[in-house]
Design a protein around this nucleic acid. Structure first.
Lengths: 144, 144
DNA sequence: TTTAATGCAAACATTTTGCACCCTG
DNA sequence: CAGGGTGCAAAATGTTTGCATTAAA
């Protein structure tokens, strides 16, 4: 997590007349700290507990809502029955390769894909806001 | 729905020692009939009720499970908090353009996208089984 | 007649909400 | 010290499951 992230978060709170509480900072840091983990609400709770921090699931969900609205965090569907959350980098949209054997999630950003999507937007005269792209299959390790 | 679909369904049931019940046929037909509707479990229930058919939600979910396993139906996440189901045509994978204003869902299949995805698979030495691609934004009508 | 399918209600899992109390600004 | 934030428990969804009954093969 960069200082810049923290400032963006602080700005967001200030702009919306929201309070910068200790609990919010904890949750925010937990997500930013594990940029490759794609945490879910429960996992965040567990990680905070392991650090001796007591936070309620309700507050985690409420804070996740704020973070998603702020644009700092993205909600992802990885094919499970609950949402996962990931740091929304400054980079453009990206997709996920999800291994159905080991559950590993590999992120990728590909300009060819992005170009093709932009093309589709034009073709249907559809303005793209964001996209969600998940590829399910099996990774190299699991196929050996 | 084609006769071929019905036969594929019948075959699937026979092969797996499952019974071809009236209820299963009803549910199956309802999904196949509305190829562009992307129904959810509740919508299927309502449509069957409107036709005077009484089916339980439990059976709808159980049958949807079968249909997905058979490959005749696909489960899609359209950004709502529940699953939608669509006829899994014989065509290759496709994506959805989802209008955030009116909720309209436009399907598209694009070879450029598919090519780019195959490329990514190779790059990461990942075997692609299927993909899920949703684009959120606003359609031409809603932008007027 | 044997085995699976159905409906119902209860169980589950995830996420949201109401409310009394606490803390930040 | 005013107004939002928090935890807790309860509610709201969406989906699954156990069990007695019904129906397909």
């Amino acid at each position: 997590m960069t200082t810049l992230d923290s400032e963006r978060f602080a700005d967001f709170l200030r702009t919306n007349a929201l309070k910068a509480t200790a609990t919010r900072r904890l949750i925010f840091r937990e997500i930013m700290a594990s940029s490759s983990a794609h945490l879910d609400a429960d996992e965040i709770l567990l990680r905070l507990r392991k650090k001796g921090k007591s936070v309620s699931l309700a507050t985690i969900y409420r804070t996740l809502g704020l973070l998603v609205r702020s644009g700092l965090v993205g909600r992802v569907d990885l094919g499970e029955n609950h949402a996962h959350y990931e740091r929304e980098g400054p980079r453009a949209g990206h997709g996920h390769l999800i291994c159905l054997s080991c559950g590993r999630v590999i992120e990728f950003a590909d300009s060819a894909v992005q170009g093709a999507l932009a093309q589709i937007g034009e073709e249907f005269s559809f303005r793209l806001d964001k996209f969600s792209l998940q590829i399910f299959g099996s990774c190299a390790d699991c196929r050996r």
